[in-house]
């Protein structure tokens, strides 16, 4: 699942992986890749996975607009109801809204998330998306791919491949949360 942000307190055992400049450059590259791969963006739509993916989707849309002069439609997807661990939880996660204010039919939907890890979130997101309509194609863009996949899922656009151990935590901190843009890796407290 996506890494959870837990306040902005700096920890001594966290290591900076990407700074604001790195993130900006990577997003610009991904925007170009999306435009290139889809030969323009006429059929492209971005769907951010709550919460981090939504902010990144908006940033990508801005860059695509700068490149192509086209505003691509943006949707927001809460995958909670499609999670595969609901039946096992002691407490149900708080739901957020899904909002796809455009018709998915015929679209090349780029799912956007901050960190790709086990792949379970993406599986849930694809199921959720299919219940909302019938896109022509689904692609995946992530800021960080940290490995350890548990499902056969691969991203089309990757900001940075980051080898991690399972015990580590990867956090994407963004201005939208009132943070300085950065990606950090946190080693477990021993």
């Amino acid at each position: 699942m996506t890494e959870k942000r837990e306040g902005g307190i700096a920890r001594t055992n966290e290591k900076l992986i990407m700074d604001a400049g790195d993130i900006a450059r990577v997003l610009t590259r991904i925007a170009h890749e999306i435009v290139e791969r889809n030969k323009g963006v006429n059929l492209v739509a971005l769907v951010g996975i709550r919460t981090g993916g939504v902010h990144l989707a908006h940033r990508l849309a801005k860059r695509i607009h700068a490149i192509e002069g086209v505003s691509v439609p943006i949707g927001e997807l809460d995958i909670t109801l499609y999670r595969d661990d609901l039946a096992l939880r002691k407490n149900q996660p708080v739901l957020r809204k899904t909002s796809i204010p455009f018709d998915l039919a015929g679209k090349a939907v780029v799912l956007v998330d901050d960190v790709l890890f086990t792949g379970r979130t993406i599986r849930a997101a694809m199921d959720g998306l299919m219940d909302l309509g019938r896109p022509e194609e689904i692609q995946l863009a992530v800021l960080v791919d940290r490995g350890h996949r548990q499902l056969p899922i691969k991203a089309n656009y990757v900001g940075k491949n980051l080898p991690t151990s399972r015990e580590e935590t990867v956090r994407v901190l963004l201005e939208e949360y009132g943070e300085e843009d950065r990606v950090v890796i946190i080693k477990p407290l021993s």
Binding site: D78, Y82, L95, R96, K97, T98, L132
Partner: peptide, 27 residues
């Protein structure tokens, strides 16, 4: 308030073409 907020999310689901989600599958 938590129940009302949660209901809001489901209000969106009941407005969809496919008004079904797998959250309680197997229950």
């Amino acid at each position: 308030m938590l129940i009302l907020d949660t209901a809001d999310s489901f209000k969106e689901v009941t407005g969809r073409e496919i008004k079904k989600v797998p959250a309680l599958r197997g229950k």
